[in-house]
Nucleic acid binder design. Structure first.
Lengths: 171, 171
DNA sequence: GGATATTAGTTTCATATGAAACTAAATCCA
DNA sequence: TGGATTTAGTTTCATATGAAACTAATATCC
């Protein structure tokens, strides 16, 4: 299969040379980290929440009762990260874990009243941040972004070791 | 200023609710990490290089003689990360650091012969991975991606604590 | 000239990460 | 039934990270 040359290095001098600032994996990494940092700050400062914890709360807040395994499937995080996030959330009284009577290996998770309160507070803030980011784009560009992210994720998952995935650092 | 509502949650039931899988910061994070993982594997397995080291080599390989400060400006990495990457690269004999006679706080970095050899080997592999990723897109979409990444990065930098930036983890 | 403030880069320290090993509970299957 | 395998989740351990403190050299200001 002939690969589509990147449109970013069309000029002849650039063919075969690598300019990091135009290298898409690098750009994605820097962008993702800039955005994450901005959002993580809200979670951390106002709610003492890490990103893994936020993801757990987002899923439990939306879906109701979930097990850790469900969350692993829903959040692209590995089980160690989920386990630790859940441990911290339960310690903080934001999530309650009750062991499933039908299968006592499983813990069914649900937000506590305090957890729900925080959830209701965070969601608008998170949406507002996202809106502020997307506000840099025209509505059509937003739709294009949606499609591009989906296509790239699908492709990237086939290139990755395991499938899709999350890790701590980037290029 | 009225914020443009995200086009991904137009349906009324979704307004004000947050679906993580559609949340752009989350999607960016997962995509970036999937891509990074796939590329980092090449660097690590074949060359025993970390991503920070790869970035340093990419910049020194392209620009010739640079100081650590130059690299900080060019790579969105903080000085600790650059310092460690450079230390490992010099220990491995891939980069040579000579202290600048004019300002002896500075170390001027350059690839050694071994470093250049590796650099020439990696660049095509990295470009090939990028091409394989972008090959999921139409040429027009590639151009759109280029523009979207630029716009989003510009906006994100204004939302972030410091400016643009890199960190270890994401949402 | 010489005290003070900056700048380049390194080290320390506390925290986050994930692969691999582990524990406990189900499930398989003979 | 009862041993072997799988699955849910936790713990261990080695590594990566970055804020803050630090060192050394230069620039500034009087």
């Amino acid at each position: 299969m002939k690969l589509n040359p990147s449109p970013f290095k069309e000029t002849p001098e650039e063919a075969g040379s690598l300019i990091l600032e135009r290298f898409v994996p690098y750009r994605l990494s820097v962008l993702s980290n800039t955005v994450s940092r901005a959002i993580a700050r809200i979670y951390a400062e106002r709610f003492d929440l890490t990103i893994p914890e936020w993801r757990v709360m987002a899923q439990v807040g939306r879906h109701g009762r979930l097990t850790a395994s469900d969350i692993i499937g829903l959040t692209a995080m590995d089980k160690v990260r989920v386990s630790r996030a859940v441990a911290r959330l339960t310690a903080a009284g934001r999530v309650e874990a009750t062991s499933d009577a039908a299968d006592r290996r499983r813990q069914v998770l649900a937000l506590t009243a305090a957890g729900r309160r925080i959830y209701r507070e965070i969601v608008p803030l998170a949406l507002e941040r996202e809106a502020r980011l997307l506000d840099a784009l025209e509505p059509k560009e937003c739709q294009a972004l949606d499609r591009l992210l989906a296509k790239l994720q699908a492709r990237a998952s086939t290139l990755a070791p395991h499938g899709e995935g999350e890790l701590a650092e980037p290029d």
